[in-house]
Design a protein around this nucleic acid. Structure first.
Length: 740
DNA sequence: GCCACGACC
């Protein structure tokens, strides 16, 4: 194995196990490459799905099952067929350099007609009629894309790439072409924003329209749809939000729930709501009111399909077998100590030995991506001139959108794109032209551990549950009188949340004033549910309305709701950053610091150029992206406030008392008192908390603190901490619970 | 005297 750069990796290898040249093991996903087949078959009645998945022993198709020999050579591996430039290149393993250079940029070729021809070659097309017929006949259909023989997680990822991006993407278009959108919209929900937006662009291109016309999308802060929109991709959270305003989702004829197997609380809640809505809409009474029956299409990639089917009254399961070997996956022969280095080597091995095609590398996080990005660039520069160029595209959620887009830009001729992604791309990103996937295997393991740790933490778990049940209550309350007073225990979840957590969260909602003592939603609760915020901050905002400081509290909430951290923090710059931050400090603690930063930035923004703002942020170690995101959130919150007739302009000026009072109202459970032994103890259960060293209150002792969240590492740390007089908490319900 | 990552509204 000769890779010129192997010897030059020294620094990191010296203190880790030196990796001998990697033995690559290309493992096709499908166990039966040569004759992989397409099955579109109803399997729900007679045979359990599991049998079909476990091997090739599918029962003889009862209905219209279609089998098709795989006509594609294995080396033709374009997702969507996008990088299939000319038929001459198709399927040929060796592409001459000349041919590569002659490749036209594919964008000019990607007319809707070309795309249609490519689409028609997809396996799922052979089962198009069956699929439409089934959806026509049944209220609910479950589409299962099978994962092939082995079911390791890694294979699973790749499977999703292939099937969802090629075949399952056809489903909304079939429905459109099959007339399901004549007087209503076909919705397709996605768990992630980037999936919703990129799928919309892809389908728009295939339909030969621009995004926002027939094909559109809706995600937070970004909606591109119009009255003519027929296929709408949206995040599941967005659809839940629409539920609040339109409890029967009346403008939708079909709702496709993609990636249903991911089973977050949001999707579970959505699935339960859809089931309920379908029951209501598909009764005669409502048909009289001219509401179309609702069709539900569940797309799942796992054996969960059977459970989905049971949940929806034995809905039919359509089993799609697709070309599953269109992406090669490479593992290293042995587990690698230094996965970054292993990934680097593997990439260049692929690069110098394999035919054109882009490479996707999964890495655990931003840091690893940034470092690997540098390494790849460095080594790519040293490659002989007859090798392909390398373009490195980082891809992680907190990356600026413009930089993220780089990965979606078609790869120029004689070039290989190297996409470095976190598990943002794990499921449903549409990156055309990916041919090789290198999975360090690390991101999954890491996140698994994190999740275990997370689930041990009560406060982290109960939060989303409480939010969801608040919404659910609001959604139900909005429906009509008669649904009022339904308790969340009555909602027909596939897997009901742990009753203990439900109890805790209901108690919290009661403490926030969102529920009355009978468990009925209050006006306050209804308002809270219509704010796109955690329940705690939603309550803080309403308190701010009473206290006349909505502007300040909105600002603070916006900062804390942004995904990026406000302060840039790394061990090297920590001291400088600390010094720069001093000009924003306030004796009360972190929340007023946020406010001060935001105020300062807004002043700067008024007079400075974009470059000036950047420079200001840099010199103060402030993350401008966090500020921009928070200003986006603020704008959105302002609009919601206007709808709810909350005056967002009310300001308490320099008086911080009402601000802190409002914040602690929502965070009433996150309060700790200083005990004589010098430790802070939570008022609820008297367990000890420590102020996080990153907090401006670190090292100071004050009598009473409240905080945004607890982080459990070696010790229990409170982050986002402010000091308040003890008198502020006397009237808080949690304090009264404690006394009682 | 300090641990992530990712996702949604």
């Amino acid at each position: 194995m000769s890779i010129g750069f192997t010897n030059t990796i020294t620094t990191r290898a010296s203190n880790s196990v030196l990796i001998s040249p990697l033995r690559l093991q290309p493992r096709p996903i499908s166990h039966s490459q040569k004759n992989s087949s397409v099955m579109l078959q109803n399997t729900s009645q007679q045979s359990p799905v599991g049998k079909n998945l476990s091997g090739d022993t599918l029962p003889p198709p009862k209905r219209k099952a279609v089998e098709m020999a795989d006509s594609e050579d294995e080396s033709d591996v374009s997702l969507h067929g996008i990088n299939r430039v000319s038929p001459a290149l198709n399927g040929s393993k060796k592409i001459s350099k000349k041919a590569r250079l002659n490749r036209p940029p594919f964008r000019s070729k990607s007319t809707a007609n070309d795309l249609l021809r490519q689409r028609e070659e997809l396996p799922i097309w052979t089962g198009r009629e069956t699929l439409l017929k089934e959806i026509c006949q049944s209220d609910t259909v479950v589409i299962l894309g099978e994962t092939g023989s082995g079911k390791t997680t890694r294979k699973h990822y790749t499977f999703r790439f292939v099937l969802i991006l090629t075949d399952l993407l056809e489903v909304p278009q079939f429905l459109l072409e099959g007339g399901f959108a004549k007087d209503g919209i076909i919705a397709c929900t996605q768990p992630r924003r980037v999936a919703a937006t990129s799928l919309a662009s892809r389908v728009a291109a295939e339909q030969g329209v621009t995004v926002g016309t027939t094909v559109g999308y809706a995600v937070r802060f970004d909606e591109r749809s119009s009255p003519e929109t027929k296929i709408k991709f949206l995040t599941d959270g967005m659809l839940v939000r629409e539920l609040l305003g339109d409890p029967l989702l009346s403008k939708y004829n079909v709702i496709i729930v993609d990636e249903a197997h991911e089973r977050t609380l949001r999707t579970d809640f959505l699935l339960a709501s859809l089931k309920d809505i379908q029951k209501r809409r598909n009764t005669n009474k409502l048909i009289e009111r001219r509401l179309n029956p609702l069709k539900i299409v569940i797309m799942s990639a796992t054996l969960d399909a059977e459970r989905f089917s049971q949940y929806y009254n034995n809905a039919k399961i359509l089993n799609i077998k697709g070309r599953q070997h269109t992406v090669k996956i490479y593992y290293t022969a042995q587990p690698q100590e230094d996965f970054s280095e292993a990934a680097l080597k593997t990439f260049f091995q692929v690069h110098v030995t394999q035919p054109p095609g882009d490479v996707l590398i999964f890495l655990p996080g931003q840091e690893e991506i940034e470092s690997l990005q540098q390494s790849v660039r460095m080594y790519a520069n040293d490659l002989p001139h007859d090798k392909m160029q390398v373009i490195v595209c980082p891809m992680y959620a907190s990356l600026a959108p413009s930089l993220q887009n780089k990965a979606f830009i078609p790869t120029p001729p004689n070039t290989r794109k190297c996409i470095l992604a976190t598990n943002i791309a794990e499921t449903s990103i549409t990156i055309p032209g990916i041919k090789y996937v290198i999975d360090t295997g690390f991101c999954k393991e890491k996140s698994y551990i994190a999740r275990e740790r997370g689930s041990a933490v009560e406060s982290l778990i109960t939060q989303p549950i409480s939010k969801s049940s608040a919404m659910q209550r609001a959604g139900r309350a909005g429906r009509l009188l008669k649904c009022l007073g339904q308790s969340p225990e009555d909602v027909d979840f596939m897997d009901p949340p742990d009753p203990d957590y439900v109890k805790v969260s209901l108690l919290n909602l009661f403490g926030l004033g969102a529920l009355d003592s009978k468990g009925t939603i209050t006006d306050t609760g209804r308002k809270m549910a219509s704010l796109p915020l955690e329940t705690s901050f939603a309550r803080s905002l309403l308190a701010a309305q009473e206290n006349g400081c909505t502007y300040e509290v909105l600002s603070i909430i916006s900062i804390t709701s942004a995904s990026a951290k406000l302060f840039i923090d790394s061990s090297e710059t920590r001291e400088a950053a600390y010094a720069a931050r001093q000009k924003f400090v306030h004796p009360s603690g972190d929340h007023i610091v946020y406010l001060n930063v935001l105020r300062a930035y807004r002043d700067i923004a008024k007079q400075e150029t974009i470059r000036g703002r950047k420079e200001w942020c840099r010199s103060h170690f402030i993350n401008e992206r966090a500020i921009k995101e928070s200003e986006d959130i603020m704008e959105q919150l302002k609009r919601v406030c206007e709808k709810l007739q909350i005056d967002w302009k009310a300001s308490s000026g320099e008086n911080v008392e009402p601000i802190l009072k409002s914040l602690v109202r929502g965070l009433h459970q996150n309060v700790a008192l200083l005990h004589p032994d010098g430790q802070y103890k939570q008022i609820q259960d008297r367990t000890a908390v420590n102020v996080h060293p990153g907090s401006s209150l670190s090292g100071r002792k004050v009598s009473c603190i409240f905080y945004e969240e607890l982080i459990f590492t070696n010790r229990t740390y409170a982050r986002g901490v402010s000091s308040i007089p003890v008198s502020f908490i006397a009237e808080l319900p949690s304090y009264q619970f404690r006394a009682a």
